[in-house]
Amino acid sequence: MLLIAFFNWWYGQGWVWIAKRSINKIQNLADNFSVGILLRTLFAPWKQIVFYTGTQSAIGIKLRALVDNMVSRLVGFMVRTFVLIAAGFSLVLATVAGILIVVLWPLLPILVIVLALAGVGVAGL
């Protein structure tokens, strides 16, 4: 009776549970890397390092500010891109691991039986 209840859960709600758990892990990883924020602010200036010029400023000063601001944005873009790449790798790994767990999940109880049979030396195993 208890064994039936176990199999019932393992191949039903248990499978869904482990899949959700894997998805949660991936989401947490994405949160830790701030993937959403990184994508939204990919070209934003680095740490608000921005140079302001007045409307009356000389063209040279305006050009200088434009260049400086572009550098700030470039630094931001580079750092964010680097982190996004690292996040991408981590997420791919986590996703593969998650998929593997979900795929292997139904095989685990069978594996117990197989290993046990192999252990006691059943022919062919």
Binding site: F6, W9, Q13, P109, V112, L115, A116, A118
Partner: peptide, 24 residues
């Protein structure tokens, strides 16, 4: 040692029971 597989089966069963407890 072939009995190692049996021990492995026990370890896996252990893990499965733990997961069952966590999830259900």
């Amino acid at each position: 040692l072939r009995v190692g597989y049996l021990v492995g089966a026990l370890a896996l069963a252990d893990l499965i029971i733990y997961l069952w407890y966590l999830g259900d």
